[in-house]
Simulated scan of single mutants.
Amino acid sequence: MICAALGLTATIGTAAAAPAASPPAQRTVAHKAPDPVLVDCFWHPQTRPKEFILACGDGNSQLVSLHWESWGTRSARATGVNVVNDCDPYCAIGTFHPYAVVVRLDRPEPWKKHPRVEHYGRITLTYLGERPAQFDRVVSYPLWN
């Protein structure tokens, strides 16, 4: 019994005296933050949508045929068509007119509904030819949060 105890002590002593194995090398993986989203009228996050309603209350201004050239952490850019109701003589029976535009999204900020998700805070439309009456060639709007 004494021999067994001495043998056990020797084994434990040897294991304790051995240098500790170094931990396995850790790989550093850079996690890219997800790009901002575009929040639609129904509070759904969108990425590179083909269509987007600008006038949520009545749908009298919307973007269609969007072709995204870029979508990044600071901004996004697309070409498309802004279809706008002239509301003549009033909106319910007005006529929709198409206008070629360049769309730019920027000013990413935390989305109040999901603070860990960023959304674009501003949209800018640049009309390439004709534009709706009383519109400047370039118009910017804050986007809802």
Rank of each mutant, 00 (worst) to 15 (best):
143 L>R: 07
15 A>N: 03
127 Y>D: 01
28 T>F: 15
133 A>G: 03
124 T>E: 06
19 P>K: 07
1 M>P: 12
51 E>G: 13
137 R>C: 00
47 T>W: 05
118 E>W: 03
18 A>N: 04
65 S>F: 05
104 R>K: 14
4 A>V: 08
137 R>N: 00
142 P>F: 04
74 R>D: 14
131 R>Y: 05
112 K>C: 12
43 W>G: 00
133 A>L: 05
133 A>S: 07
86 D>E: 09
141 Y>F: 13
45 P>N: 07
35 D>Y: 03
48 R>Q: 15
99 Y>A: 07
58 D>K: 12
126 T>K: 02
17 A>S: 13
47 T>G: 11
117 V>K: 03
60 N>Y: 14
15 A>R: 08
9 T>N: 10
3 C>F: 09
52 F>S: 08
19 P>I: 00
88 D>Q: 14
24 P>Q: 07
131 R>M: 06
89 P>M: 04
35 D>I: 10
44 H>V: 08
54 L>W: 04
70 S>Q: 12
60 N>E: 11
120 Y>P: 03
130 E>H: 12
14 T>E: 04
116 R>H: 12
19 P>N: 07
66 L>V: 13
80 G>T: 14
67 H>V: 15
53 I>A: 10
8 L>D: 04
60 N>L: 11
56 C>L: 08
103 V>L: 05
105 L>K: 00
82 N>E: 14
89 P>T: 14
135 F>H: 08
117 V>W: 02
14 T>R: 05
62 Q>H: 12
73 T>R: 14
43 W>M: 10
126 T>L: 02
85 N>Y: 10
33 A>C: 00
10 A>L: 13
35 D>A: 15
30 A>I: 12
37 V>M: 04
12 I>S: 08
32 K>P: 07
3 C>H: 10
105 L>R: 01
9 T>L: 13
101 V>W: 02
55 A>I: 05
29 V>P: 09
124 T>Q: 11
115 P>E: 03
125 L>P: 01
83 V>I: 09
17 A>W: 06
71 W>C: 10
54 L>T: 03
105 L>F: 03
140 S>P: 08
69 E>M: 12
142 P>W: 01
115 P>N: 07
39 V>Y: 01
37 V>G: 00
90 Y>N: 14
90 Y>G: 07
135 F>S: 07
103 V>M: 05
39 V>F: 01
121 G>C: 04
133 A>F: 01
74 R>A: 14
50 K>M: 14
97 H>W: 05
35 D>P: 09
48 R>T: 15
100 A>G: 11
65 S>H: 15
124 T>P: 06
12 I>P: 00
20 A>Y: 01
56 C>K: 02
136 D>Y: 06
18 A>R: 09
104 R>H: 12
98 P>C: 09
62 Q>Y: 11
135 F>P: 00
16 A>C: 07
134 Q>D: 06
5 A>I: 09
97 H>K: 08
44 H>P: 00
119 H>I: 13
131 R>E: 04
51 E>C: 05
57 G>A: 13
